[in-house]
Design a protein around this nucleic acid. Structure first.
Lengths: 193, 193
DNA sequence: AAGTTTATTGACTCGTCAATCAACAAAAAA
DNA sequence: TTTTTTGTTGATTGACGAGTCAATAAACTT
């Protein structure tokens, strides 16, 4: 029953299933069979399309990073002026798509993966550099020479809030997460003004 | 060639080897045999003393948390007054024992472990609660009602800085890590003063 | 209609690894 | 000195899981 053009659909289903499976399990120690089952296909097919488990993970990670990027860009679209743009970047970082249980948990796991996997590490570095550069750019006119340090601090704080959300039970609290980071930003800005 | 009283020595060696192995591998996917070899014994002996791989990991995690607690307490010993004590807690969090490559990496991995392992989760919660409570207690006289939020922010920032250090290449920069967190603290305090 | 490409899976291989066990060795206790 | 306790390991078991393969089938091409 081969409906042609299945490839992109299958790939997407696998990526989604991977994030869900890893997120639920809270671990990368999930089997290709589990992922494939959740995506409604055999493990052989998963291998057929991705070649290896590693590639499946990388695709899932790319998907997460892409989603994250899209949310930041979306928030940034309507923001004018450095402060508004900074707030947008922060808000985008806690977007509804990214700041969800499974995604957060998957994120944490991919973080660990990038300790071993060069490509995963590369992806993460790209994301971190871009975020930091964005922040620094908007911070420059507001806090001058402190821009670099504040950008790093904000980046680390965002990661920290994510990681803590991964561990907290119950649904992660976006509002609260956002508040913590926004207040940090406000303190940094008010000193300088 | 049984030298008596080997148990505590073997256990300690295994714990140390576990942290090193997990830290170097950057993953929990290390074998008991690898750990045991590094500790200079057979895998059978590791099982003999700990019963299971899980127990070995938990012991290693306890060891890390104990070390961390000791460093904070050490820093706290000579500090008087809320601000000095806050600085001590932060400094202790980046102590030379805890803020080392393998330990940081192991820490990150145990963080992931606590998504699956109830006992690991419990341990981590205890540490987080204690840290937050300590911070809150010293913050109260300085920032009043904001104490809770600032304590959470500091905790998250510390975790975030750790996690980023795990990914950075080369030796982790204690000074810089400390500076980021200390500056955050200073901003929060100067607003209120 | 024959041939090719795409989709799909069940069954299998091969390696790995946690955990167990039987056996051996040396110290301590009886 | 026998017995028991403590220390130690090589060999083995049993399970599990990534990746391969042969086979089947439906579409699309010529």
């Amino acid at each position: 029953m081969p409906k042609l053009g299945a490839e992109p659909i299958r790939r997407a289903a696998l990526v989604k299933a991977t994030i869900e499976t890893v997120g639920e399990a809270g671990s990368l120690e999930v089997t290709v069979a589990q992922i494939a089952r959740r995506a409604g296909m055999s493990s052989a097919l998963a291998h057929h399309y991705f070649g290896s488990k590693e590639q499946i993970f990388l695709a899932a990670m790319r998907s997460i990073l892409t989603l994250y990027g899209a949310e930041v860009r979306g928030a940034l679209a309507t923001a004018t002026g450095p402060e508004a743009r900074l707030r947008a970047i922060v808000a985008g970082s806690f977007g509804v798509g990214s700041f969800r249980r499974e995604v957060i948990s998957a994120w944490l796991n991919f973080y660990v993966l990038s300790q071993t996997q060069p490509e995963a590490r590369r992806l993460l570095h790209v994301y971190q550099r871009r975020l930091r550069s964005n922040l620094r750019h908007e911070l420059r006119p507001l806090v001058g020479s402190r821009a670099e340090a504040v950008a790093r601090g904000l980046g680390a704080l965002i990661d920290g809030v994510y990681i803590r959300a991964a561990l907290a039970e119950g649904a992660p609290d976006r509002r609260y997460a956002l508040k913590i980071v926004t207040e940090y930003l406000e303190r940094e800005l008010e000193g300088q003004a």
